[in-house]
């Protein structure tokens, strides 16, 4: 307990409880209060607690991806967020927030996420010219993910790609699964292999995996992040046009398949 002259900071449980309820902006400022606060705010246990705190529930936002042709010297491909008011009412106006800033990286193809407030941005999309970056709009941090290239044949052309972002619940590790299928110009057909790699944030590196997936099974693009409790979910369509659910477990790094929900009759 604290006597009338002692520091309240001795009450770590209280500090921890109070700080985990603060907005990110306040935490970035209070990191410089003292070393112990700085260490606490940076610790992974605190980050998890802050993430789970009911008072930090995320604001509803609309994301708009567009090209600004008026930008000099070249058009800027940027993400604009529109923060929606907590209480929606007829005629309410979202606040415009241009949250994205990553110097030197302007050419974006798509965005995945969020998982725990984290997004993955994808830059470029032609054969070997692909880069990913982590983006945390709350702290405005953007970190490039190391480049990774599959071993491609000269006759390859892009056919399809799938990206999924999620958390490995066993190792508390954020991971990215990336699958690519190529068209072989020489054979005039799709090359029969799903090139697959997993990136781990803890190791900051990529790893090739050999999934038991049919290359002619189509995984539908999940428009938002269809990640839940350690698994990523895609709707899949086999060559025979059978619908199913394809899953990827971020902890075991194994794919799974389940039957899709029954479709209602046309009548």
């Amino acid at each position: 307990m604290t006597s009338s002259t002692e520091s309240y900071s001795r009450e770590e449980i209280v500090t921890d409880h109070i700080l985990s309820r603060l907005p990110v902006k306040s935490l970035l400022r209070f990191k410089c209060v003292c070393e112990s606060w700085c260490d606490l705010v940076k610790s992974s246990s605190f980050i998890r607690k802050h993430c789970d705190s009911p008072s930090n529930r995320t604001h509803p936002v609309v994301c708009k991806f567009g090209v600004d042709y008026n930008h000099d010297p070249e058009p800027l491909r940027a993400f604009n967020f529109f923060v929606l008011p907590e209480k929606m009412y007829a005629g309410c106006v979202p606040t415009h927030q241009r949250l994205y800033r990553c110097e030197g990286v302007t050419d974006f193809r798509s965005i995945s996420g969020p998982v725990d407030g984290l997004f993955v941005l994808e830059k470029g999309h032609y054969l070997e010219n692909v880069r990913f970056a982590w983006w945390n709009p709350a702290t405005k941090e953007c970190r490039l993910i190391p480049k990774f290239n599959f071993e491609l044949l000269n006759s390859f052309d892009d056919h399809s790609r799938t990206v999924g972002l999620g958390l490995d619940l066993v190792n508390q590790d954020y991971k990215l699964i990336w699958m690519r299928v190529f068209y072989d110009d020489e054979k005039s057909d799709v090359y029969p292999k799903v090139f697959t790699a997993v990136y781990s944030l803890n190791n900051d590196s990529w790893k090739l995996i050999e999934p038991d997936l049919a290359h002619d099974t189509r995984l539908c693009v999940s428009l938002n992040c269809t990640y839940l409790n350690g698994l990523y979910y895609w709707m899949s369509v086999s060559k025979e046009n059978v619908y199913g659910i394809c899953t990827f477990d971020f902890a075991t790094e194994l794919f799974g398949e389940t039957e899709g929900p029954p479709f209602p009759n046309d009548q």
Partner: peptide
């Protein structure tokens, strides 16, 4: 001041 903390930075 509120938490009676001395800065160590």
């Amino acid at each position: 001041k509120i938490f009676r903390i001395e800065s160590d930075f």
